[in-house]
Nucleic acid binder design. Structure first.
Lengths: 139, 139
DNA sequence: CTGCACCTTGTAGTCACTACAGAGTCAAGC
DNA sequence: GCTTGACTCTGTAGTGACTACAAGGTGCAG
């Protein structure tokens, strides 16, 4: 929770409010995703509500699987409120395509691994079908 | 293709045969997944059929999404042919569970992103639903 | 003998963090 | 005022699984 007098957050408070590790908050600052906050007399970072908003955006987008580069782009777009939002839409659409590809890859993988598992006869490694299926044709 | 006289492969030939980059083959050697091969007079690596078999195993397991640590374990098990294969089975089963979790996570993500996309009105960023959905409640 | 493809080692970069070490700050309790 | 403990600071290095590059050596065809 923010210091009631100044409305400012310590790094720990900001981290907790956004379910982020303190180190990660500093990391976002280092790579330029989160603007450098002011400092207290003791050189502690003092964040504002704007920082909280921005960090929440970043975390939410990360949860949705956007990369930090994509988020940088989204933040850039979000800062120009009079642009039209087709670019944002296109980015989300691209991302959706990526996710669809990943899902179908994983499903194929699942099928294959499951087939392998169905063949386990609980014998010795020498006739283990899983090891066999992973091994090359013959050597 | 192997040198016809010795049945040995250069690193490039091994890489090509297993659809692996040369650097990756050297990387597997460095991290102890692939045994160090013999060398030619000119200090080139000279691989045998055993190396080819082992690298094929590694690549196939990687394709199936096993981590290098898991592959290390599988290779260790595969080397003791009289062990029973329940351990292998359990590893594959665990891995299948991981994959199922990933698939359902991605599906949830997909739903969420798709809902967001359905709301695009092609207006300005100021009323973009995607940006809005990513942004925190109010600041 | 010249060119070129291939190989060698070593090092550093990628992504998105995460984990430390060693020091400083701050507030509460005694 | 002093101690304790939680918090914060900077800087550096580690993770996984590669990937890229530099600067040099090797091997072979023309």
């Amino acid at each position: 929770m923010p210091d009631s007098r100044s409305g400012r957050y310590s790094i720990g408070a900001l981290a907790e409010a956004t379910d982020t590790k303190v180190e990660t908050v500093r990391y976002y600052e280092r790579v330029g995703l989160l603007p450098k906050p002011g400092r207290t007399t003791g050189n502690y970072r003092a964040y504002t509500g704007d920082h909280l908003a921005r960090l929440s955006f970043i975390r939410r987008a990360r949860d949705l699987g956007f990369t930090l580069d994509q988020i940088r782009a989204l933040l850039g777009l979000a800062d120009h409120k009079d642009n039209d939002c087709c670019t944002v839409d296109a980015m989300a659409r691209d991302h959706l395509g990526d996710i669809d590809r990943k899902i179908s890859d994983l499903k194929a993988l699942r099928r294959e691994l499951n087939d392998l598992l169905g063949q386990c006869q609980r014998g010795t490694i020498a006739d283990c079908r899983i090891i066999g299926a992973l091994s090359p044709v013959a050597k």
